[in-house]
Design a protein around this nucleic acid. Sequence first.
RNA 1: GCCCCGGUGGUGGAAUGGUAGACGCGGCGGACUCAAAAUCCGUUGCCGAGAGGCGUGGGGGUUCAAGUCCCUCCCGGGGCACCA
Length: 850
Amino acid sequence: MGAMARYNAKESEKHWQAEWDARALFATPSHSDKPKCYVLEMFPYPSGRIHMGHVRNYTMGDVIARFRRAQGYNVLHPMGWDAFGLPAENAARDKGVSPRDWTYENIAAMRGQLKMMGLSLDWSREFATCDVEYYHQQQKLFLDFYKAGFVYRSEADVNWDPVDMTVLANEQVIDGRGWRSGAIVERRKLSQWFFKITGFADELLQGLDTLDRWPEKVRVMQKNWIGKSEGLRFQFTLSNQTALDVFTTRPDTLFGASFVALSPEHPLAQELAKTDKKLAAFIEECRHIGTAEADIEKAEKKGYDTGLTAAHPFDTNWKLPVMVANFVLMGYGTGAIFGCPAHDQRDLDFARKYKLSVTPVVVPSDADPKTFEIGKEAYAGPGRLANSRFLDGMTVEQAKADVASRLEKDGIGERTVNFRLRDWLVSRQRPWGCPIPMIHCEKCGVVPVPKDQLPVKLPEVINFNVKGNPLDADTAWKITTCPTCKGHAVRDTDTLDTFADSSWYFTRFTNPDFDEPVDKQAADYWLPVDQYIGGIEHAILHLLYARYFTRAMSKLGLVKVAEPFAGLFTQGMVCHETYKDAEGAWVSPEEIEKRDGKVFLRSSGQEATVGASEKMSKSKKNTIAPETIIAEYGADTIRWFMLSDTPPERDIEWTDAGAEGCWRFVNRIYRLCTEAGDLPAPGTPVSADDEASKALRQASHKAIAAVTDHLEHLRFNSAVAQLYTLANAIGGAEKAGPAARREALEAIVLLSAPMMPHLAEACWQALGHSKLVAETAWPKYDAALTQSNSVTIPIQVNGKRRGEISMAKDADSKTVEAAALANDGVIRALEGKAPKKVIVVPNRIVNIVA
RNA sequence: GCCCCGGUGGUGGAAUGGUAGACGCGGCGGACUCAAAAUCCGUUGCCGAGAGGCGUGGGGGUUCAAGUCCCUCCCGGGGCACCA
């Protein structure tokens, strides 16, 4: 045994990364007899540096990729860059650099940082969405979608900055003002491109049921977002002889109606406001309550009586007042409703305020219809109809169907399905995105760019010293000829929402060099992604858009699958303590030091206050730079930290003490392997001859079984705990034979390899192997060795633990019962009483009922 | 308001209805050292000298047995929101 050698992570990691590269171990072959496994993490925006969130995300993905590779799968594990978007434009404007150069420089820097993490990525497939070749293929897809009728053009509101003469993204509008100019933002109508995602609303909803390896939470969020509701659309005839369309999901409550309400934005309300100043003022008031004040006014239901009445469809003598109400949304249904206060809380609040009638028409089964009354709470549950003429006695479902059928027969109603989901507006008036391959001709109108004239490339130089969209101002780029009539025409100067870029990149990874968007053979082999990993913040939009794209592509015959991600995992955030100085300004972790459980500023020695642990963010100055940690301890330590202790779906807190603990463990494994003493040659068969060897062998095989199972289920923290347990067993097994010790050491190296791949290679070499761990199969366990042949069985008396006995495994119940009753603690607890009943659960527990 | 998750030692967290607190961090005691670091050994839910008692947010229930299942309430986090 030599002096304790410390593991030189820096040198070792560089060395093994070079070895993996030299053997191209992670380049995925296009043909293989092995089963496939596609592991993917959400690709990053190239901001310039990786952060702890990336480290956590990519570590988890890498563990799965390496684990599956060792298990004999053909693994695809690619990486790329979500490279279009606003930050590059901002950098270009602020620093005068080209967005292209800025982006590619950031990519180079981040690629270097990711490589330092030792991720088993197939870098040969790397691309950025701003690569001409990628957006070229995306333009072809856009044209395919257009041809198939998945794309249409329509007017839509945009945020317009009248000073900068530009369209703003929602996040660029702060308190109603442009973030850069400070000008009050106006709403403007522009002709915009839409993807008709609503055409797939039902499919996208039903598809959720097939995604059994998605978090329930995400499926619920998507379901709510799509927001399907089935109901009835029908007409009221108003006192001014016009017809008013309303939508309801509760046609059964029609006899409980006490008013009809319009959205303030409803055309009829607008029309009436022209001659009714008070109504105009009310509508104006509603408009103001819009966003910020909504919280203050906190949902007080308000209305205005238009003086019109609506005739009840089943009794034309029955007149309902027509109100304009602030809680009716124009964007949902028809923008008009009938109110049934007894069975809808909003309607009830409204009715009480304006003293409208409240008639219960659905009575719960445990209530008496004669006396059932509505107080402050509307009743929305099941029951039988009452006060409803021909509907009386029916269930809610029966009454819904009956009303719908009658109104359909009368020709004034129709059953409809309503979705909350809207079509996807994809036009962006921005220069750093995928140009929309369309041409506007004075004579021919909107004409697609013929595929053989693609790509529509972004200009080499984008001039930001203009008002508005640089592409629009670039006449040389914009002016073109019409592909149809050869006449004067201009290009569409909008680019696609960057969510489009990330909606099919995983498909492109299956063959990124193909000269069409999709190599069907490759895509059909690799898709769906078996395990997708990313942040919960993408639970709705990115994942829904990607699902939509895949379905649309599937309809076009480009891919076989309808659902792109068979398995989804959403990891938690990385948090850190926050610090503030005496003035209340945020202070970064590097600026403080801890002494005697207190925190002081390094610069002044002043005491600082410690705040809650929060998501690492620049604004709260509580970030830790991954490269600093890697430089200090190496990539394996930071990877191990990210996997330890905290379940992967929860938020993890970065602590220095925890990082040091991880580094100590790295060294402990290294020492166990390098100071193992004499071991038999690799491959020597093991037999358990003595107790100590047998115990160690059992520990090894239990660990193999447990770690394998935990990794299968992404329980990284539990896998980590098992490895600590095995390390403890090896450390305490001086008496075990050399063969059993070799077996245990090899197990711990192979099992920890997906998490700490560089350390594993160094240890594997120290154990005398010439092949790399990255080329070595996952260890197998001997089931006989995962169980001991004697078991400790606790004995309870009346459910309280009073003793324990050691028994042979699978000993028969009578023997166990006799031993239990003979136990001292049990005898004491029984106090001479005879047991009434003895429950023996084999190998687990005995409970004596006295 | 509705829909999801959560609530376990000082702390992060384990636990197919069957020994609550595995494993890590931290603490305490010790060994080695001139000393420190590193390392190693022991110990560590609470009360109690001990026997023992009490303990998984509160209350109730099912069961031989409940952190786990059921009811109810409280607290924290997330999502959606006047969606008719």
